[in-house]
Simulated scan of single mutants.
Amino acid sequence: MKQALIFDMDGTLFQTNLILEPALIATFDVLRKNNLWDEDTPIDTYREIIGVPLPVVWKTLCPSHTLLIREKSNEIFQEKLIELIKAKKGSLYPNAEFVLERLSIDNSLYIASNGQEAYLQAIVDTYDLNRFIKKVYSIQSISSGQKSDLVKKVMNENYITGGAVIGDRLSDIMAAKDNKLTAIGVNFDFAQAEELKQADKVIDHLIELL
């Protein structure tokens, strides 16, 4: 039996909140310049839904926009996020590298994220996470856009039969339960108390994983 720990990225390993606001502001500044937005940047709305698939994000943030404009908005947003990541304006959560290093000794570690491939790769490259993580899986790699299916893909491709999913949102918790893995909720920036109640265990700091 091969055990694995499957991590979410945003709000679990990476402090997305540090780059979220400037990236969103920059994106909506572009929309304003093109007369596609005339209100404040909907930062609070995004914080409430972070972790959901990106098409849902932009449908929620810009319900009156066409699909084409939403897709372009997301492209701009991704570019701004990556610029900030590479400039090290973001950060991993406290003790993330230490915990990953320790866990990788006796466990196979993977990332399964709703983030896009280029965005995730920017984080992995900037913080050299390949030292600990065997493979990173983006939601872009599956057609359904569901985290449960993404975790199932991780398990099938790597012959995983047990372990845990570690994440901050309900999609992570349900992905664990749907695949008969332990659901570990992290009570970090974007976590919701009602969602965490469904996890098998809840931690307040990554160091608790040890």
Rank of each mutant, 00 (worst) to 15 (best):
I82W: 08
F77R: 01
D44A: 00
T60Q: 10
K72T: 04
I82N: 08
R47D: 07
Y46L: 15
F77D: 02
V56P: 05
L68G: 07
I50Y: 02
L68A: 13
P55D: 13
P53N: 08
E71T: 14
Y46V: 09
E48I: 06
K86M: 00
T60S: 13
Q78G: 12
K86L: 09
E83I: 00
L61E: 07
L67I: 11
N74R: 10
T66Q: 01
Y46S: 10
R70C: 04
Q78E: 15
L61K: 02
E79D: 13
W58R: 06
Y46K: 03
I49H: 11
Y46P: 09
I69W: 07
S73F: 01
K88C: 12
L67S: 15
L84T: 04
I85R: 00
K59S: 12
R70T: 03
L67W: 02
V56I: 13
E75C: 05
I85F: 07
W58Y: 15
T45S: 14
F77K: 03
I69M: 04
K80V: 06
R47G: 11
L54A: 10
V56N: 07
L84M: 03
K72Q: 06
E71Q: 14
G51D: 07
D44N: 12
S64Y: 11
A87G: 01
C62E: 02
K86I: 05
V52W: 15
T45G: 11
N74Y: 12
I69F: 02
K80E: 11
L81C: 11
F77I: 03
L54K: 11
I82F: 07
T66H: 00
V56H: 10
K59D: 12
L61M: 08
H65Q: 13
S73E: 01
I49R: 05
D44Y: 00
E71M: 11
W58A: 02
E79G: 05
C62I: 15
R70Y: 05
E75T: 10
P63S: 06
V57W: 08
L84R: 08
N74A: 14
P63I: 01
K88P: 01
P53D: 06
V56K: 12
I69H: 09
K80Q: 13
Q78R: 14
K80F: 12
K80M: 12
S64R: 11
I50G: 08
